[in-house]
Lab assay of single mutants.
Amino acid sequence: MQRVNMIMAESPGLITICLLGYLLSAECTVFLDHENANKILNRPKRYNSGKLEEFVQGNLERECMEEKCSFEEAREVFENTERTTEFWKQYVDGDQCESNPCLNGGSCKDDINSYECWCPFGFEGKNCELDVTCNIKNGRCEQFCKNSADNKVVCSCTEGYRLAENQKSCEPAVPFPCGRVSVSQTSKLTRAETVFPDVDYVNSTEAETILDNITQSTQSFNDFTRVVGGEDAKPGQFPWQVVLNGKVDAFCGGSIVNEKWIVTAAHCVETGVKITVVAGEHNIEETEHTEQKRNVIRIIPHHNYNAAINKYNHDIALLELDEPLVLNSYVTPICIADKEYTNIFLKFGSGYVSGWGRVFHKGRSALVLQYLRVPLVDRATCLRSTKFTIYNNMFCAGFHEGGRDSCQGDSGGPHVTEVEGTSFLTGIISWGEECAMKGKYGIYTKVSRYVNWIKEKTKLT
C-alpha cells in the first residue's frame, strides 16, 4: 500500500490518463441519441435557420407576430419608411378606419389613436360632414345658397324668414311668412316636400332668348283662358290664391305678392273693366268669414305684352289694390325667389296649380277651390304637342294621358313649387288646347323671366 501511494504521488498524470480511459469505455446513459432527441424537440425550422439574422431580410411573422416588435424591426421587413409607417399605425392600436367614419364618399386613412378623412370636392370637416359648395344638395341650405369668396357655403332665406341657429334652416321672422300653410287642420295635408338634388348652379339658368321682337298675326285659340281631375282644397291650404270678379264672377285667378299687390295673367284683364279681388276665398257660393274683398285701382301688364300681336306672350300683369290686405292664416303671400332659384325650383319637376275653373272641358265651374299636382314636361315634348308657338318664356306641365289639367277660369292662378315646406311661385296658368285632352298640356308663363320686374313694381313704400 505504501508503494502504491508513492507511485500516485510521483505520477499524477498517469492516474488522470487511467481515469479518462475508464470513462470513455463506459456506456453513456444520461444523453439520448440524435434521433430520439429530435422526437422530443420537434420544432419547425425557421426561415433563416442556421444563418445569422443580421444578414437576412426581415420576416413579418418572425419579427412582429411571434413577439412584439419595434418600429426598427418592422422597418427591416418593409425596407421602406412609408410602408412601415402605414403598417405601424394599425399594428400599434388597430384600424381606426374600420367603422368607416368618413361621410359623403370620403376616404379614410388610419393613424395612431386617430384617423384622417380625405374629402371629395365640396366637403370638409373631420368626417367630411361639412358642405362647402352650393353645387351639392344646395349646400344643405333649406332655401338659398351662395358661395363666399373663400368658396364656403353661405345660406340665406327669402323675405319674412331668418336663418336658424344651425345656419342652414329657415324659420319665420314674421307672423305670416310667405308660402307657408298655417291653418292647423290643413298642415297635415301639406304636399310632399321637395329635397334639393345635386345641381350645376353655374349652368342652372337656361341660355334662352326671349323672342321679344317676333311679330306674329293673332292666333285663334280655343278655350285658351284655361282644375280638371283635381281635388277639393281645404280652407287655408292655398292662402296665396285669390279669385278675380268682373263682368262675371271667378273669371280668373291670381296670387298675393304682398298686402297691396296681386300677380295674374295679362290676358285676364281689360282696361276700363272694374275688377274686384277676393282673398281668403274657399267656396265661392258661401260666406265663410275668411274672405277679404278689395278693388283694383291700377293694372300693370308687362311692358312687352301686346294682345294685338299675341294674347299669351309675356302673359303676366300686376294688380294694385285700393287697401292693403290683412295677412292671416287664410290670406298669405306666395314666396318669389330670384331668377336663378325660381328656375331651379321649376326644374324640380312638379308643381301645384289651383283655381275655381271648370271641372271638365266646357263644363261647370268649381264651387270649392280645386288643386292638382302636375309634372313638368320637357321642352321637346311640349313643342311636338301643339302647332302653336311655345315661346321661351312659357313652359308645359300636365299629363300625356289627359284627364287632369287646369281649365277655363283658372287662368292667372299660381303654379307653385314647394321647397322644404315653403311654396314659391314658378308659373302662372296661361293657356292650353281644350282641357285635359290626351297628348295636350297646360301652358304656363315662366315666372323666372319676370321676377325682377315683379319685385321692382310691387315694392311697398
Rank of each mutant, 00 (worst) to 15 (best):
V416R: 02
H400A: 11
W240P: 01
Y371E: 12
W118S: 13
F71I: 14
V30S: 15
D110R: 15
L23D: 02
G402Q: 06
C97H: 03
I316A: 01
F360S: 06
L41Q: 15
C69M: 08
T190E: 07
S255R: 00
M8R: 08
N310Q: 11
E420W: 14
W88K: 08
A9W: 13
Y444N: 02
I334A: 04
N304P: 02
Y115D: 12
E286V: 05
W431R: 03
E281T: 11
R3K: 08
I284S: 07
H361M: 13
G409P: 13
F399T: 07
F399Y: 08
N310G: 07
S220H: 06
F424Y: 14
S114D: 13
F224T: 07
L23C: 04
T16Y: 07
L189C: 13
S11F: 12
T225F: 05
N59C: 08
R298G: 04
R379S: 15
Y441L: 13
A250S: 09
N5M: 09
G230Q: 03
H415P: 02
T158Y: 03
T389S: 14
A149H: 09
N313K: 05
I443C: 11
P175E: 08
D200R: 10
P239E: 00
R140I: 12
C128D: 03
D223L: 12
F388K: 14
R358N: 08
I40G: 15
K126C: 11
N283R: 12
C18Y: 02
T389L: 13
Y201H: 10
K109I: 07
S354Y: 11
W240Q: 00
P235F: 07
V278E: 03
N313M: 06
L425M: 06
F424M: 00
S329F: 07
E418G: 07
A173K: 07
I454A: 01
G254D: 00
A317I: 02
G349P: 06
T381S: 12
K293L: 09
N222Y: 11
N42G: 05
V56F: 06
S423P: 02
G50K: 14
V92H: 06
V377T: 14
D212N: 11
E129R: 09
P101T: 12
G412N: 06
I7E: 12
C396F: 02
S255D: 01
K137G: 15
Y115M: 06
P177I: 01
T225A: 04
G160E: 02
T458A: 06
V331N: 01
K188E: 11
G439N: 08
H34M: 09
R373K: 08
K152L: 11
S430Y: 03
N166Y: 02
N5Q: 09
Y391M: 08
R294Q: 01
L14I: 13
I7L: 05
S350L: 13
L383V: 08
N283M: 09
Q167W: 06
V257H: 00
V273C: 05
F224R: 05
N213W: 06
A266N: 02
G363H: 13
E171P: 03
D232W: 10
G94D: 08
G106R: 04
N313P: 03
K126N: 09
C102M: 01
P414Y: 14
K45I: 14
G402T: 15
K455M: 10
E61V: 06
L32R: 07
V419D: 02
E61G: 13
N80Q: 12
G105R: 12
E98Q: 11
H289K: 11
P172M: 04
C145L: 01
L32I: 11
S365A: 15
Y441F: 11
F388S: 13
E67I: 04
K362A: 12
G13C: 09
C178K: 01
P239V: 01
A397N: 01
F388T: 14
T381F: 15
N306V: 08
R358L: 09
Q241R: 04
C435V: 03
I136D: 09
W240V: 00
E270H: 09
E61K: 05
R46Q: 12
E288N: 07
T84P: 15
I336F: 07
L460Y: 15
I316E: 00
G94H: 09
N135Q: 12
E76V: 15
M65F: 09
G355K: 06
V377Y: 03
N295S: 12
V257M: 02
N100V: 10
Q96C: 14
S187D: 04
G442K: 06
I40K: 12
P414S: 06
V92F: 06
E67D: 13
T190V: 11
N104A: 09
S220V: 10
I297N: 05
F424A: 01
G349D: 13
Y352M: 03
A337G: 07
V451L: 03
P44N: 08
C252L: 00
G421C: 02
E159H: 04
G427D: 00
T290Y: 12
S70G: 14
T342K: 01
K109L: 04
S354V: 15
N203A: 08
N80H: 06
A266F: 02
K347F: 07
R140W: 11
S329H: 05
E285C: 09
S148L: 12
N104D: 03
Q370Y: 04
I344G: 14
I256Y: 00
C128E: 08
G246Q: 04
T342F: 01
P239Q: 01
G442M: 15
V174Y: 04
S107R: 13
E61Y: 07
S25Y: 12
L23N: 00
K457W: 05
I428F: 10
F360N: 15
M8A: 12
G122L: 06
I334Q: 01
A279I: 01
A279D: 00
D338K: 07
N313D: 13
K126E: 12
G13I: 14
S448E: 14
K51F: 04
D200G: 07
T386F: 05
N222H: 03
V374G: 03
G427P: 00
H361K: 14
E433F: 14
F31V: 12
V181D: 06
P177D: 01
Y201N: 11
I344K: 07
K45L: 10
F121D: 05
T271Q: 08
Q370A: 07
N5Y: 08
L319E: 00
K89C: 11
E66A: 10
I275Y: 04
N295D: 11
N306T: 03
C141Y: 00
K68Q: 15
V195M: 12
A436Y: 09
W453V: 01
V359A: 10
A307V: 10
N42M: 08
V183D: 07
R180L: 05
Y371F: 13
Q167M: 08
A149D: 08
I316P: 00
L325P: 00
I284A: 08
R226S: 05
I136W: 03
Q237T: 08
A308S: 12
N80R: 14
R404N: 05
V353D: 02
L460H: 09
F251M: 06
L211Q: 06
T158L: 06
V202R: 11
K457D: 02
T133F: 12
T218G: 07
Q167I: 05
N313S: 12
P12H: 12
V195D: 11
P375D: 08
I300N: 02
Y330E: 05
K247N: 10
R449L: 11
S406T: 14
L383T: 14
E82R: 11
Y391G: 15
D198M: 10
C28L: 00
E288Y: 07
A337N: 01
C102A: 01
R364I: 12
E193A: 07
V377R: 08
H303S: 08
T271H: 10
E418C: 07
W88T: 09
K362D: 14
E54C: 08
P324W: 02
L319W: 02
Y441K: 03
A26Y: 04
Y305Q: 02
G357M: 12
F251P: 06
E53S: 08
C108R: 02
K387V: 11
E72A: 15
K126M: 04
I210S: 12
V30K: 14
F238R: 05
C407M: 13
T389F: 09
S385Q: 13
T133R: 05
E165T: 06
H415I: 06
N306P: 02
K89G: 09
H303D: 12
R46N: 07
G351R: 01
F251G: 05
T389I: 15
K438F: 11
G409A: 14
A337M: 02
L367N: 11
Y312D: 02
N100G: 04
Q237R: 08
Y47P: 06
K339D: 14
L20W: 08
L244W: 01
